[in-house]
Design a protein around this nucleic acid. Structure first.
Length: 457
RNA sequence: GUCCUUGUAGUGUAGUGGCCUAUCACAUCUGACUUUCUAUCAGAAAACCGGAGUUCGAUUCUCCGCUAGGACGCCA
């Protein structure tokens, strides 16, 4: 087999979509599996829609996922440049060839059209199977959404606009040839374009690469993912402090399966197993909860110090000032207590006030505490015992609570919920004892008294 | 409208012409543990889209239907 070359060929018209990132990932995995090369090519032929920010988003997303390209922007292997906007000379030459062979012509509007062959074109797709169509016949009608009818059109499709700029189908194929792409793995939305591409490959006298059209990624409800949908844009993962390895792992499971029961897998194992026969045909629905769960699994692999550093980096990246006003050692200690509960870093926002905000109570939680007629008395006793703790740490607090329980003649569990609500203002949260310890004696005692008075005026 | 693709629990999936009263995981519910919990551990509930056909036998193969998605641009 000749050297495997795959490519990711995004157009920089917006943000990097998870579907695009997943396409990049699959191409990368395939190349790595076969010891081939992964090429990044930026398809910026539509000047009106392309932006520099979008180019940056593509680079950022791929780098963040650690999908390194062997050839592409910043890494020319002699087949570049890798921006299509810089390759017009090549397109001109190839177009000349087609014109000379009478495979293309200028139409009445001044655009150049490819003369589609009036004979069957066979596309063989590694996932969707093979299909033969006659482009001349099939392309001769077009659906008009307004009249909701098919209207006759010229089956010869435009490959160059009247203004001289080139179109996707043409440049895509020319570049795949010039860049020696052997395997085209792309979203299933391109499947219907493929006969056109095959015809172009043939017209340009090139061998046809292997095609594999992978299923699309949809929302959990089956609708198409648009920018505002949760998880649709790669920058949200970066911004929310996901671990790249976790997201990469999750994305690899969307439309592909190792065929055993593993889900959390090191990238080396995924590379080793990745191949066509493990790819699915059906569209995948995106499940953010599972993505977060996988993230939590990767988070759990971190030691406490690494977690704290990660959390702190994320907090700094938010630019929020509130994080900075608390004692640094206390924050670190609090983060360690939060760690087992955190699936993804933004949840720190939920836990933060339970450590660092002294007033306010969740109304429902307060009502629940107030509903127990004996709660006031119990909590009074608990607070009295806590007030005399000398060395404020988990063990000492435990002793004080034991003593309070003994004095009251009840089990600790009876008042723990109330204590939680007083201490954190919330009904659920982190382990209570470490939370009490982390906040510190003076501050915690003050807070407990204050909230107790609030619940039982 | 035409063409294409798809269909296993809510979600991602495994699997097979009879070992399928169908795998694993997330989510859900329950219990246990613990002082609490959104942690942990244990358990439960939950699916082969429908109809014909082929077959001794179909979730598995074929056809039809339906569902969902895609394509049909001087977008990519």
């Amino acid at each position: 087999m000749t050297q495997v070359r795959t490519r990711f060929a995004p157009s920089p018209t917006g943000y990097l979509h998870v579907g695009g990132a997943r396409t990049a990932l699959f191409n990368w995995l395939f190349a790595r599996h076969y010891g081939g090369e992964f090429v990044l090519r930026v398809e910026d032929t539509d000047a009106a829609r392309n932006t520099d920010e979008a180019v940056q988003a593509i680079f950022d997303g791929l780098r963040w996922l650690e999908l390194d390209w062997d050839a592409g922007p910043g890494k020319d292997d002699g087949r570049g440049p890798y921006f299509q906007s810089q390759r017009t000379d090549l397109y001109e030459r190839q177009l000349d060839l087609l014109m000379k062979a009478d495979r293309a012509y200028v139409d009445d509007g001044g655009a150049v059209r490819f003369r589609v062959p009036d004979e069957p074109v066979t596309v063989s797709d590694k996932i969707c199977g093979s299909r033969t169509v006659n482009l001349k016949e099939e392309g001769s009608t077009c659906y008009d959404p307004e009249t909701r009818q098919n209207v006759a059109v010229n089956p010869d499709f435009v490959i160059r606009r009247a203004d001289g700029s080139f179109l996707f189908h043409f440049v895509n194929v020319v570049d795949d040839i010039a860049m020696a792409i052997t395997h085209v793995i792309r979203g299933g939305d391109h499947l219907a374009n493929t006969p056109k591409h095959v015809a172009l490959f043939e017209a340009l006298g090139s061998p046809i690469p292997e095609f594999a059209h992978i299923p699309l990624i949809l929302n959990k409800n089956g609708s198409k993912m648009s920018k505002r949908d949760e998880g649709a844009s790669m920058d949200t993962y970066i911004r929310d402090g996901f671990l790249p390895s976790a997201v990469r792992n999750y994305l690899s499971l969307l439309g592909w399966s190792p065929k055993d029961d593993r889900e959390k897998m090191p990238i080396e194992d995924i590379i080793a197993l990745f191949d066509y026969d493990h790819l699915n045909h059906a569209n995948a629905k995106f499940d953010m909860e599972k993505c977060q769960w996988l993230n939590s699994q990767y988070l759990a692999d971190l030691d406490a110090g690494a977690f704290v550093k990660l959390a702190r980096d994320w907090m700094a990246s938010t630019g929020e000032q509130g994080w900075l006003q608390e004692n640094s050692a206390t924050v670190d200690a609090a983060l360690r207590v939060m760690r087992p509960k955190i699936k993804h870093l933004p949840e720190i926002r939920d836990h933060w006030p339970r450590f660092f905000v002294d007033d306010g109570i969740d109304l429902e939680a307060a009502a629940k505490v107030a509903a127990d007629p004996s709660a006031k008395l119990q909590l009074d006793v608990v607070l009295r015992h806590l007030a005399i703790v000398e060395h404020w740490n988990e063990d000492a607090i435990t002793e004080a609570l034991d003593a309070a329980a003994e004095e009251l003649g009840i089990k600790k569990g009876k008042f723990m919920f109330g204590l939680r609500v007083l201490a954190t203002g919330a009904a659920q949260g982190t382990d209570l004892l470490p939370t009490l310890a982390v906040v510190g004696s003076e501050r915690m005692l003050h807070r407990l008294g204050r909230r107790l008075a609030e619940i039982f005026p």
